[in-house]
Amino acid sequence: MDTIKESGANIEEPASALLIQPVPSGAFALAGAAVALLLVAWLVMYFFTFLPRGPVG
């Protein structure tokens, strides 16, 4: 047990490497799709609803 405690780096290095080894492509795809939808919705509202209503300032 002592050797494991003292050589924490030896345990953590492979464990952390294992965790980040698979690139979270699913998470990126989900987040990307959500943000893309949000941007498209914003642009549609901006160019097809807000701008045609004209200036008020």
Partner: peptide, 16 residues
Amino acid sequence: AAIVWAGLGLHMNPPS
């Protein structure tokens, strides 16, 4: 860019 373009080009500014 859309907000700046509309503000400068179309005078779409908040009422002030």
